[in-house]
Write a protein that binds this DNA or RNA. Structure first.
Lengths: 218, 218
DNA sequence: TAGATTGTTAATCGATTAACAATC
DNA sequence: TAGATTGTTAATCGATTAACAATC
């Protein structure tokens, strides 16, 4: 009924949100390397942006630089982690225990970055019951129980194109709050459920086009 | 010295290029399902775009729809494949034979879509010589020979953050024409070499933020 | 023919860059 | 202090949407 009273409810433009993880990764790395301060010009050079874009972007988070010194790497890291919600673990389930799915489940970088895979599911009897690291591939029937029992936030979809929409429906029904889509399909879900696409083949196509434009071979 | 005489040299805006692979995947699928015609409104609905965006996007490729019927799925697929260079095989090398790298090398979808992995490389003696499907992990010393011998277009980088820039330098030196970056690093390369980022962790962060904004839990 | 759907132009919207006063 | 670097406003640039004449 009132105006939003909390600090920082202001929504950050999508294009800026997409860059914030890059600043976070870079700030993390600089701090680990013992660098204490970084300027917008240095950040821009490291990430392929103008210093102007960097300052605009960082003006969206609750953190300020200091004239003549720049940004504290530790402070920047903390503020970005807080804004992005990277300061606590997030629980994910992964659907599709093919090569790609199993590799993602085993990818230590996810756990290091706070994304815990707490379940791997598949519909094929051939893989149900097999181990993937410390987990065992479960049947799709067990999905709803795990999602509501363990407060699962995110579903990662790594199934073939033809199965993708059905799996997305099951995940939404089970109650996940967002989907990471690694399939070629476009997933249709209720408006309240965000979907982020991470399609490697599409990225390869985009790259192949850029390569071709540079100096056509055919 | 002359004006560009070829057809279609006009450069397509980056934002459109990024959507073309989606149209291609969808047109492929529709054709396979036996659907012969599709309207801009249907394409938009299937891919989460307005019909206006669809018509604008398709105006950049050398293909025309027909009033009252829409676009021929087969014609659309062919024109998009031609524009994107998806009508011939592209040879890739993959650097980094960890979980993710091996999974990508084994991912049949790449081959199906015309991206042939013709070499897997790693700098760690522990994995050199091991099999990955039909390939054997090679030492980085053998990279330059393979790239120029086999006309390799694309290098796929799947190594840890700290090794990414060094590997990118080696790939560029060896002569690849574009890089697909799956590491958290931002790669700095000569202006003529396009880089496309496909960072799964960054995508997860973006998603986690969207989820948090929807209904904050913390 | 009448109606639906295209291709394209013009209007709106959003993102990036430039510029500069404030400030450490 | 003088100089460098921020935060922010204004200007530019590009992308999306709306509108509509052309046309099958």
């Amino acid at each position: 009924m009132d105006e939003p009273a909390e600090t920082q409810p202001a929504r950050i433009p999508p294009t800026v949100v997409r860059r914030l993880p890059k600043y976070l990764a870079h700030a993390q790395r600089l701090r680990q390397m013992g660098v204490e301060w970084v300027s917008s010009a240095e950040l821009g050079e490291a990430l392929g942006l103008t210093s102007s874009t960097v300052r605009q972007d960082l003006s969206h988070i609750d953190f300020y630089g200091i004239s003549k010194r720049g940004y504290s790497t530790a402070g920047l890291e903390a503020a970005l982690a807080q804004t992005l919600g990277a300061d606590h673990e997030i629980c994910c389930v992964l659907i599709g225990a093919g090569n790609l799915g199993r590799a993602l489940a085993l990818h230590e970088e996810f756990a290091r970055q706070g994304f815990r895979i707490c379940g791997v599911f598949d519909s094929s009897a051939a893989v149900i019951g097999k181990r993937v690291g410390k987990l065992v591939v479960q049947s799709m029937d067990e999905l709803p129980g795990m999602v509501c029992g363990q407060d699962v936030d995110i579903g990662i979809v790594t199934v073939p194109h033809g199965a993708a929409q059905r799996v997305a429906d099951q995940l939404v029904l089970a109650g996940v709050r967002g989907l990471l889509n690694l399939t070629p399909a476009h997933l249709i879900v209720p408006r309240k459920i965000p979907v982020v696409d991470a399609r490697v083949v599409a990225s390869l196509r985009e790259l192949a086009y850029a390569v071709k434009i540079n100096e056509p071979r055919f």
